[in-house]
Design a protein around this nucleic acid. Structure first.
Lengths: 194, 194, 194, 194
DNA sequence: TATGAATGAGGTTTCATTCAT
DNA sequence: TATGAATGAAACCTCATTCAT
């Protein structure tokens, strides 16, 4: 399996750095190769083409991202704690890796629809984690039984995504992670005064 | 003023169609010119360069988009009605113009950072409309006085944006507009059972 | 005759100024039209095409240039005085009109060979004036009878041309006209010590 | 060093030929590439841009040109022999390579001021060779001690340049080289009868 | 005569990918 | 496996010229 060879990871990490520093469109294969310390042609021993590098970047990093969140959630007992944990982890992981945050929130979205469709595939397991938390909340009689799970998931993910994107655009000038509880409160209790 | 000349609008509309049908990167100036029924060079009598076409597309269309919403909101008396109206209009306007929805949700996001920054400028007035509704809701004692307006706005916009994007990706296979009330309820009342 | 209409001269003078200030390649027809205070299309009522403007510029200005020199020479009695006068006039006329000097020495030489051939036609009468002075010098028994007139003319013109070009490149930072006598001495007496 | 790679010279020579045959402005990069038997993109592995090709053409060819002359001059003992040798070499080298003569005398002069400035830099060593010969002649008490060296150099170079240009325009229809001695005599002894 | 909006041909350069070594 | 020199397709923009008014 190629993914276990040392140069595979070397190239993935080089790609993240090059894209973060130069932007998606200026991230030429030759730059990634140079950053990884391999020849241009070597890239093609590990990746089918440039798009394959980018999808793999997302797969690798998002895989870790989701795994971390899934692990953290497993330690929590109820849906509310799990949701708060997910929000907290979502923010903290991206806040901890600024390069990755830039790539995930800004640069990779400049890719063409074909690539974005593949990225969406990679994202699916994460969305399912959100779905299952919501379902659990309903089963635990915490969340309203009549909520549309898809709708709630779109709200949760849309909100988190928009928040991280704004934070990246503002170049991380404020503390994202400390907003986790406020977001959680807002999502669960809504805007209305009680 | 160039914007009032007939060919200006002709080119803008041609650009929306060409981008929607071919994608952002395959939208060559020559294709837009042909679709608009003008010579390539004519484009440059009305637009500084290709990027200027794209920014103008967004400005024109988003300007109308916001104006329509602002008008509709003005007829409503309280923040809750206004918020529902905004959601409804947001969905219905994009659902009514599929080409525009594709361009706004998918294609224009492939643009480079410089262009995206300009697009964000155009978007700002819309975000301010959302902000003012939230402030109004607080003043009317409907929304909780201690909410973070920026946070709420990110939730509202993030949710709507994510929903429209998913709807576009699903190629408009379901009815987006009829979800407006459910989204409104979710945003205002939150996820929790009462 | 078009050449007597007021706009003809207007366009010619505009062309000299635009070329001198912007350079040959940046001297678009539209710029010349604007400088002349006429519409782009009007240019084509007076000139066949852009090349025709440039040839006409040279014809008009060089025609005056030669006429001035011819007039001045006519007042001189012998070949030596005539040659000195020609040198002096050659320098002083170009030194007096810096725009024209730039156009004649630098900018017009960037034109294509077809245009340059036409310019050479315009130059011919001037070369004939030089030839006739040399012939006169031989007839007056001042110049060596066995000189090759074509060769001498190439030396005279080549020297003057090179000197003016260098002076233009040096942006007129030194006095060109006061070198006239030294050049004359050098051309007639040669480099050798006597 | 790229200059030693075989394709470097291949492209330089192709450029001379293409420019000579098609003219400066019709010398597209693709034509030069085809003539050199390489792909368009290969050009850019050896040259920064099109202007760099042209400057390099001049540098390479003029470098050889000057070197040949310098070598020949070194074998001569006095300034007069050296000057005659320089004239002879100047003519014979350009007469021997008609393509190069066309490029040097006509085509490259159509270039823009930026390129011409660079070309002038390349030319400088040649002008210094002329200067040093003149200085040597003065030191040897052959040339008049009071001559202005810059002036003499402008006469010498201007004369030679004008002669070669005329010869090229006349398409090499007469023998240029055999005029070397006559030019030398004219430059040193002047026009006057003795 | 005069206008100026419209035309449309044409070329430099980049960069993902290949393949001989 | 690894290299890196070579490939070649593809597109934005300018500007001389025209022609309906």
């Amino acid at each position: 399996m190629k993914k276990n060879k040392p140069k595979y990871k070397l190239i993935i990490d080089a790609a993240v750095q090059v894209i973060a520093e130069n932007g998606y469109h200026a991230a030429q294969v030759s730059k990634i190769a140079k950053q990884a310390g391999v020849a241009d042609g070597t890239i093609y021993l590990y990746f089918k083409n440039k798009e394959d590098i980018l999808v793999s970047v997302f797969e690798e990093k998002m895989g870790q991202f989701i795994q971390q969140i899934a692990n953290a959630i497993d330690t929590k007992e109820n849906a509310n704690d799990k949701l708060l944990t997910l929000i907290h982890m979502h923010f903290s992981q991206l806040a901890a890796d600024h390069h990755l945050a830039i790539v995930a929130q800004l640069e990779l979205r400049q890719s063409n629809p074909a690539l974005r469709r593949k990225i969406n595939q990679v994202l699916k397991p994460y969305l399912q984690v959100i779905d299952s938390i919501i379902q659990e909340g309903i089963d635990e009689n915490i969340y309203a039984a009549d909520v549309n799970i898809t709708l709630v998931r779109q709200m949760v993910f849309g909100t988190l995504d928009e928040m991280v994107t704004n934070w990246v655009i503002k170049e991380g000038k404020y503390n994202l992670v400390e907003q986790a509880e406020a977001v959680h409160a807002l999502l669960t209790e809504g805007l209305n005064k009680r």
